[in-house]
């Protein structure tokens, strides 16, 4: 859910950062780069303070809910998606944009062409964003509350099982996550491999 909501806006931001020049552009890039390294518990803590009853968004009663977890996950994956899509678009030859434009593509259509040219790098960006989400515990634990059947996910469940001394259960859940990561990466590698042949 978080990756679906953040993918298009983040890719657009990455595209704009790569293709346009405006005052303070490098500062924006540096901020997004720095945000990639922010620990998940810091994001969780910030969100907790914002969503708690005494916080500015307390009246929305979002704390310890699934929407709060999604917001936290968006905040976590957004900088990753922006930075990686920025790198993807920056790596594309300037001639691709000029060729599309001279052959009659308007700016929006030429942008889509560029996204198609960078499809594998963008796919990798999506995967990195997704990895950031599935590998985090701190934010989900703090704003989701790890409530059984409602806001508990695999990483928070592993943390809980480990704290209870249920290592076998924790390891089993860890394998599920590992399997998920392997499947996704193999799928991407397969698509990329086939794409290179076309």
């Amino acid at each position: 859910m978080a990756i679906l909501l953040s993918a298009i806006p983040a890719i657009l931001v990455g595209f704009l950062l790569a293709m346009t020049d405006f005052p303070g552009r490098w500062i924006v890039i540096a901020v997004f780069n720095a945000l990639m390294a922010v620990p998940t518990v810091v994001i969780g803590l910030t969100l907790y303070l914002l969503l708690s009853r005494s916080g500015p968004f307390g009246e929305m009663h979002l704390l310890f809910s699934q929407p709060a977890m999604v917001i936290g996950q968006i905040l976590l994956c957004f900088p990753v998606l922006v930075c990686m899509s920025h790198a993807a678009f920056q790596g594309i030859d300037r001639r691709a944009w000029e060729t599309a434009r001279t052959l009659g593509a308007h700016c929006a259509r030429a942008s889509v062409t560029l996204a198609c040219e960078a499809r594998f790098a963008l796919l990798a960006a999506l995967l990195a964003g997704f990895s950031r989400i599935i590998s985090e515990v701190g934010c989900s634990m703090m704003v989701g509350g790890n409530i059984l059947g409602y806001s508990r996910n695999i990483p928070t469940a592993i943390a809980l099982e480990t704290s209870k001394g249920e290592f076998a259960q924790g390891i089993a859940l860890g394998f599920v996550l590992l399997l998920l990561a392997l499947v996704l990466n193999f799928a991407l590698a397969s698509v990329r491999g086939k794409g290179q042949l076309v």
Partner: peptide
Amino acid sequence: WWSGRIHPDVIYLHQTPYVFMSK
């Protein structure tokens, strides 16, 4: 209105043409 500065009857070809990642 959407085409900006590019005239539809004018085409520029690069010294080393860019080819899109397709057939």
